[in-house]
Nucleic acid binder design. Structure first.
Lengths: 202, 202, 202, 202
DNA sequence: GATGAATGAGCGTTCATTCAT
DNA sequence: TATGAATGAACGCTCATTCAT
């Protein structure tokens, strides 16, 4: 009962949405879990939708901001990628309920909010893209499509995050991040073997 | 009115679920879209849930089977990865509505069906993992964690697929697949530069 | 498949109504049980209601007619009452499904049909009433309200019939009829004891 | 709006079920009649079924308890029978709607509840049976089957009650009860006339 | 502010009935 | 005559939201 009521409600909503899914969760469930009356929810949030959106907004904003801060921070491109990966995986591990909810997808959201989500996704992709472009500019990376690297990097992270959420197994975000970045930087081919032009189309 | 009624209904359901989301779509919407009476839906599918699950089952089974066939087919590991990427991106491009629906996530599905989905996901990851292991065994790839490669590979593909679905822009699956695989195989570092132990902390 | 189709349908409807109750029985159930197509039912009966009413009509008409025949037949009043009781109990025992259905009551019947039923009930009460009046007129019975005797007589029979239907136990209609009539004719008091005016207030 | 809402709803349900029959009555009808919203019904009763069962339970429990109290009370057997008859007929007259509903039969009830009803019926029959057995034991009645007397007694009462419900005519429960019991006690035969052995089978 | 009783729009599902074959 | 695929009106029930206290 110590945290301000608004936070208690958000936490209760997060838990409830996570457990039962957005549509199966009722406002009564949430009120019960928050230890407040049903009507009280509406003093702090105008609707069930708004509750969900607020959770998404707050959580994803923190996630995005964290990634952007690292992206625009100091260090080599490789170093920053590794930090971003560690941050993202650590975020998922530290916020399983939230991560699970996000994986349920943009269920029943207003079109407008879906666009905001898509924009956010773009901001994250952009952050990675810029790091990649930095790397290319600095000669740290070979010339490559920064956008493609962003998809592979983030896609890999989110796939791993999904596994973390589902398996409930312990993972070491830092170690996983190191391996992931190593794979992406060094590639799968053995050192010394060069790509043969046109090899892919043989 | 030519395609058999069951297919008309599935198609209508796919479209309606895709446009409005599972929960907002009503059986009446679907019936209208299929050009049949509401009761007719129940002659072919026992419930709204079943309709959704049938769509997922059919589509994802085809997707998974396609990937598995390539994975266990002939060709070098690199070659197979490229074909799988091309197949996956082509599948998403050719089935935008379905791909979009899948991205909505397992909304409101029975726990049992969620487990089936998760198992399917495992089968797909496994297919990639095996190709990766083949590559490592044949010396085509350096020693690496096949599971990690699977996450990076599939994560990258699904991230690109999401972009394809949203942007409605034209993409060339084959070309994108080539670039993607090239990046993963060769890595982001310039050729000749080797990973320096501890380089990430420069 | 030998009995004419109309009878097969009626029999199937009787069984199905009896097993599931009128509202829970579906026309499909009945068609299945009769071994005909659903549409065929409507060639013989205009509606589900009509099917039920026809069953009631046929069965109750036979019941009523049987009772009336005995009532207006030969024999002493006591003798006729005994025959009527035996007939009624035998009818219930021989037509359990039908008797059970009747005990479910006039479920969902049109007001018009309910009136017909009520009229039928009146005809049966009248038949007994006339026998009672005969008995009084002939000095076989003491002066009494024939209508009251009709209620007691039929009420007793129907209460016993309900027990027969529910218990599925074997009963001997003739013996039960004899006991029933004996009780009603001789009364519960020991022979020789006369009703003492005001005795009830002792 | 004065009686507590639960009672208003029960009353409205009783009336509506009585007028339209259980299956034709809709929850909306009932809500309208009770002057509350449709959803409100579900705050007090979990389902339409439950509403019906509650009506039956409450009413029949009162009826049964009343009869049992008289049966196990003081007084001669004859006296108690008369009081029970008066109570039963008075109950029907005072609760016409309820009595009519009961006569509709156990429509659409769960098998479990039907068994409860049947058990209740057994309790009532038993109450009468015990009074009859008392009478026999005390020499007040001649040796007779108490169960048979119970069927005749209750059957007669319920037949009369049905007439009361349908006719909407004024009846005097006490007087009718007196006549009924007199008939059953003294029998239909003129005083002094004894049953001739074998007469029934002549 | 806080509550929870009350509301009623909305939806999945059933099934008697129709009608093209 | 016989069929059963197709229909859509009808209804029980849920739950987000409101508002009197």
């Amino acid at each position: 009962m110590q945290p301000p009521k608004q936070d208690r409600i958000l936490q209760a909503a997060l838990t409830t949405f996570g457990q039962r899914g957005f549509h199966r969760a009722t406002m009564e469930d949430i009120a019960l879990s928050a230890g407040v009356g049903k009507g009280t929810l509406y003093l702090y949030f105008p609707s069930k939708q708004a509750l969900l959106e607020e959770i998404f907004r707050t959580g994803l904003e923190a996630y995005t901001t964290g990634l952007q801060a690292i992206a625009s921070g100091p260090g080599s491109a490789a170093r920053r990628l590794e930090e971003m990966a560690a941050f993202a995986l650590g975020f998922a591990a530290a916020n399983r309920e939230f991560a699970g909810l996000v994986q349920e997808g943009p269920v029943g959201m207003r079109e407008e909010f879906k666009r905001w989500l898509w924009g956010l996704r773009g901001r994250i992709l952009n952050a990675v893209r810029e790091v990649a472009a930095d790397g290319v500019g600095a000669g740290e990376f070979r010339p490559l499509d920064p956008g493609l690297l962003a998809h592979v990097f983030l896609g890999g992270i989110h796939s791993l995050a999904a596994a973390i959420v589902w398996d409930a197994a312990r993972h070491d975000p830092a170690a996983t991040a190191r391996s992931l970045v190593d794979l992406i930087l060094a590639g799968a081919r053995p050192p010394g073997r060069h790509a043969v032009p046109g090899a892919g189309a043989s």
